[in-house]
């Protein structure tokens, strides 16, 4: 790690990489919901887009390969809402446990 020059993983400009793969997909309902929560909470002043980016950057380089775009965004939204005091870690943990017990699929757990 002594070679580390301080450039952070998200700061990608100029790095070598392979050909651009022209991938795209239609967004799933849960992705659209993450997007909506991000817009609504930032409009309501609970966090800034800078706060979201900071949370994603601080997740470290592996996160870019191991998670999807909206995985990272919900992680960042949640991190910022905890910091804003919107709900507690205890409330989050209890709710996630309850949601996970509702069923095997997103549709079952989200109840639609």
């Amino acid at each position: 790690m002594t070679e580390f020059d301080g450039k952070r993983w998200h700061d990608m400009g100029g790095a070598g990489a392979g050909p651009v793969v022209p991938a795209e997909h239609d967004f799933a309902l849960w992705e659209k919901r993450v997007d909506a929560l991000m817009v609504l909470c930032s409009t309501k002043g609970l966090f800034t887009v800078d706060g979201l980016r900071r949370a994603i950057e601080d997740m470290g380089p592996d996160v870019f390969e191991n998670t999807t775009y909206y995985d990272r965004w919900i992680a960042a939204v949640n991190q910022n809402l905890i910091e804003a005091g919107t709900y507690t870690l205890g409330e989050l943990g209890a709710k996630m446990d309850e949601v996970a017990k509702r069923g095997e699929t997103y549709g079952q757990a989200a109840r639609g």
Partner: peptide, 28 residues
């Protein structure tokens, strides 16, 4: 400010703002 531009010399294309400093806004 992207790392690849730090220390480089350019010219002002236009002035914008003012905008809040993201280096503070990112931390609440």
């Amino acid at each position: 400010t992207p790392a690849y531009l730090r220390g480089k010399t350019g010219w002002i294309e236009r002035q914008l703002g003012p905008f809040g400093n993201p280096e503070q806004q990112a931390y609440g």
